[in-house]
């Protein structure tokens, strides 16, 4: 931290400038988070009309619930698929954008637009295009003999469809970051490591990927967090966690337990588990890359 540019002395003024930010953070971030810890020790009926202290019962319930185990498994598997899929494609596209000689800004805008794509829109559009009964894309997929694209019934298929939508939506974000990282690679450094006579993709793998690995590490964490939290609209609009729990991500289960089944205590315990997961990811990221901040919070 640089300390020697101190320009003003009145530390009361500093307090005034910091106050709004701190007030918002305390009221809307810290206080509810502590409340979550407290609530996770209670059982509730109908939106907290009646509460009973139950100690760690809610956590025991989670630990022994096959449904919850399923959600944990589905969430981690989903994150893995989304992270790998989205980063691989984004890396390829970003690299080509980096290398392209003409019309760069046109390509750029045409490639990063999914950054602005609202998840709810992504979900609605693909719900329709991939609809088992009337989707255009489904129609052509099912022209392949023997293929039935009924992801309303087939669990793994539903998982796959959801992953495709999640990857699609995240491409813009990843491309933006990777492109910035590629541009930050000093030309000379890339030049000196340029291996003669190798294909461009080998260059990417052998030269650029190691150089931008801090960004890749950062994106792995960001995309994992995205896959855990920001994919709620996809589940809610496309599968409602089904069929038979195949897409019941932790965030969706949490929402349902809280706001559909009125188990606020249990849902709070689920929040605590999610908090644990985010903390570990953030720590890992800090260890990996030190300085990056979290976008989108």
């Amino acid at each position: 931290m640089v300390r020697d540019i101190r320009a003003f002395d009145d530390s009361r003024a500093a307090a005034v400038f910091l106050a709004p930010t701190l007030a918002v953070l305390v009221l809307f971030l810290y206080y509810p988070s502590f409340e979550t810890f407290r609530l996770s020790l209670y059982e509730t009926l109908l939106l907290g009309q009646q509460t009973t202290f139950v100690g760690l019962d809610n956590f025991v319930t989670l630990a022994t619930s096959p449904e919850y185990h399923n959600s944990l498994f589905v969430s981690f598997a989903f994150a893995a698929v989304v992270v790998v899929g989205s980063l691989t494609i984004a890396l390829f596209v970003a690299y080509q954008l980096y290398r392209v000689d003409k019309w760069r800004s046109i390509y750029l805008v045409a490639a990063i637009w999914p950054y602005a794509l609202p998840p709810a829109v992504a979900a609605t559009v693909l719900l329709f295009l991939l609809h088992p009964n009337l989707g255009v894309i489904t129609h052509y997929i099912e022209l392949i003999p023997g293929v039935e694209f009924d992801w309303f019934t087939n669990g793994p298929l539903a998982f796959g469809v959801l992953a495709v939508v999640a990857i699609w939506k995240q491409l813009g974000y990843n491309i933006v970051f990777l492109l910035a990282a590629l541009h930050n690679v000093p030309e000379s450094l890339a030049e000196t490591s340029r291996l003669d006579g190798v294909g461009s993709l080998t260059m990417l793998r052998e030269v650029y990927v190691p150089l931008i690995s801090p960004t890749l590490g950062f994106l792995v964490v960001m995309d994992t967090i995205y896959a855990f939290f920001a994919t709620f609209p996809l589940v809610d609009l496309m599968t409602s966690g089904g069929p038979n729990g195949a897409t019941n991500l932790l965030i969706f289960k949490l929402y349902r337990d809280a706001f559909e089944f009125n188990s606020l205590g249990l849902a709070s315990a689920e929040s605590i588990v999610l908090f644990g997961i985010v903390s570990i990811l953030m720590l890992a990221q800090l260890k990996l890359t030190g300085e990056y901040a979290h976008y989108g919070a």
Partner: peptide, 10 residues
Amino acid sequence: LNPGVEAWSA
């Protein structure tokens, strides 16, 4: 024909 869970309109 299975229209899906609680899929009234489907």
